[in-house]
Design a protein around this nucleic acid. Structure first.
Length: 581
DNA sequence: GCCGTTTTCGGCCCGACTGTTTTCAGTCG
């Protein structure tokens, strides 16, 4: 049976992407051409964000239709899918210790330094690197010095802090798949994700699932024999833990149906929310735990089957899980004034995306087609402006040509509009790529900081303020520049930014890319409630599938208490344009 | 390693920044 399972080992898109990324990293360490290295990473990116399963694509013989996958990669992916192994990768691992790729995840350390550390000091892991730095062995190597040691140490610290959690967009599909599988079983009454996943936090720890059933044993038999199980860590009647093939650990708790609401409330958290709720219960002579609501004096159980029952018994409306951070939602629930949060279906259009005219993957027409299939009534094409050379930024002439194409395409649609936009680069002086006269012709102008992340606070803030004071710049994209797991936000004076944004009518972006989600939830709350800012939720898509990331932006918006009216791209086209400068 | 309304070969990924350096290599976006 175990052998059978191994043969059927399901390789998913994430696993294929990970293998390709690993090959790319190993090739980089081996000093291979950067184009070859890039080809592997590019294919990995496209496979990772593709909704269709890679196995499916393979079986239809359409691997080479994936952008960035040619004959060579298609063959290797095919071998990986059919055998679960890839001899090419094994060969690479013989040439260079595979753990060296771990070193490359340290910011500031790339393939060359990793190779040098291995060749000169025989360092193969982050732990060994730490020891070498403690002994000050690095500073004697050519091209490295005391400062290098310092930077690497800081990089390691950053990495440790950032990568302890998983991005929501990686965990959510895994959890949803298993929840749906469980939900389809007759012996499962209710099942839901709990914890930070249910609160749609941008990163989550473990995946916690909760289920109610009269037949826990059957549930656990089913759960521990799911096809995606790599191995089972624990198996009991109340709680089991599995590790799935993609590496994530998943806990499932089974409770009695009458306890489900209390357990769901308890395991959803957050901790601070629950503490506050329990304080309220105490004042009412009640106590709450994962089994229900009880009267303290008689120990009589008075509620617990549903969350509504639990909150209702305390005189509270049920706060949506996304708000349960003890940031005012309990007071609002008590006064029956919980906000009506923005929903994905409220979004009418997407105002930031790139095409293959610059660093995007797909054609303008393909982006349009996908946007229409998502039910949008408008989109804005915001390819990169001239001075972002790396992304192939467009000259004024090239951009005008793109706009002419857009004009022609617009003639062929009823009730769907393609807006002419740009993503400008805010330079070190706060100036941008094109003259004002050209900006004035565009529908939507976005300004972004793409360089100089390490400048002092005053300079960064000054650049952004100057950009917001530009009468043509409508939106500031990814305002803090953070990338989850990769780099922290740059040091910018947010109160000033929010104040000037509100004064100048500049819209702040909530970037939906799963590792950006920038502005993050607490900043959204601050900007909304204390400064009266307005927002745009955009995907910053670089291929058609990225357009689906809108759900993660909306999730963060909900966590930031945003309502439909706060977000410009929930409004019909004309109104939306009037809300811009 | 991918890609093609000039090309099945030769472009593609260029420039800023940092830290190490006396003129440049490595990293990153």
């Amino acid at each position: 049976m175990a052998k059978r399972r191994e043969e059927e080992h399901r390789i998913d898109n994430e696993e294929v992407a990970r293998v390709l990324d690993e090959i790319g990293d190993l090739l980089e360490i081996l000093g291979e051409s950067s184009f070859r290295v890039g080809a592997y990473h590019k294919a990995a990116m496209n496979i990772r964000s593709m909704p269709r399963s890679i196995r499916d694509v393979y079986e239809s013989g359409e691997l080479q239709k994936i952008p960035g996958v040619g004959a060579h990669l298609a063959e290797r992916i095919g071998i990986l899918i059919t055998t679960g192994k890839l001899p090419y990768l094994e060969d690479l691992k013989k040439k260079v210790p595979p753990s060296l790729t771990e070193l490359m995840s340290i910011p500031g350390l790339g393939g060359k330094k990793a190779k040098k550390l291995y060749d000169e000091l025989n360092v193969t892991s982050i732990a060994e690197l730490k020891r070498a730095i403690e002994k000050h062995e690095l500073r004697d190597l050519p091209g490295m010095g005391a400062k290098t040691e310092e930077n690497i140490i800081r990089g390691i610290r950053q990495l440790e802090q950032l990568s302890a959690r998983t991005l929501l967009f990686q965990a959510l599909p895994i959890s949803e798949e298993i929840v749906n599988q469980l939900r389809a079983r007759p012996f499962v009454k209710r099942v839901d994700a709990a914890g930070s996943l249910r609160r749609l936090k941008e990163t989550v720890g473990d995946i916690d699932l909760l289920c109610s059933s009269a037949e826990p044993r059957k549930v656990m038999d089913y759960f521990t024999s799911l096809p995606q199980v790599a191995y089972t860590i624990a198996r009991g009647d109340k709680k089991s833990t599995i590790v799935v093939t993609s590496g994530y650990q998943i806990d499932l708790r089974v409770v009695a149906p009458e306890e489900f609401g209390a357990a769901l409330q308890y395991f959803t958290g957050s901790k601070s929310h629950n503490i506050h709720v329990r304080e309220i219960a105490k004042k009412h002579g009640l106590k709450i735990n994962e089994y229900g609501v009880f009267k303290v004096d008689t120990n009589e159980r008075v509620a617990g089957a549903t969350e509504d029952e639990v909150y209702g018994y305390l005189g509270l409306d049920t706060p949506p899980p996304v708000l349960r951070e003890d940031r005012g939602e309990i007071e609002a629930a008590a006064e029956h004034r919980l906000p009506r949060l923005i929903e994905l279906s409220d979004v009418k259009g997407d105002l930031q995306m790139h095409t293959n005219a610059t660093d995007g993957v797909d054609k303008l027409e393909a982006m349009i087609e996908m946007a229409r299939s998502l039910g949008y009534s408008y989109i804005c094409i915001t390819d990169h402006a001239e001075r972002l050379y790396v992304a192939g930024g467009l000259t004024e002439k090239e951009l005008r040509e793109e706009y002419e194409r857009i004009d022609r395409l617009n003639e062929s649609y009823d009730g769907f509009t393609i807006l002419k936009g740009i993503e400008l680069n805010i330079d070190n002086d706060g100036d941008v790529d094109y003259p004002d006269s050209f900006l004035a012709e565009m529908d939507v102008v976005i300004g972004s900081i793409h360089a100089g992340f390490n400048q002092p606070k005053s300079q960064l803030t000054g650049r952004m303020v100057k950009a917001m004071e530009n009468p043509h710049i409508d939106i500031i994209a990814h305002p803090t520049g953070r990338v989850l797991g990769k780099r922290p936000a740059y040091d910018i004076d947010l109160p000033t930014v929010f104040k000037v944004a509100a004064e100048t009518g500049t819209v702040l972006e909530l970037n939906s890319f799963p590792d950006r989600l920038d502005l993050r939830d607490d900043y959204l709350m601050d900007a909304k409630f204390n400064y009266g800012c307005r927002f745009a939720i955009n995907t910053d898509a670089h291929n058609v599938n990225h357009l689906r990331y809108m759900r993660y932006g909306v999730a963060t918006a909900q966590r930031g208490w945003l309502e439909r009216k706060d977000v410009v791209n929930t409004h019909p086209l004309k109104q939306m344009l009037m809300m811009l400068k």
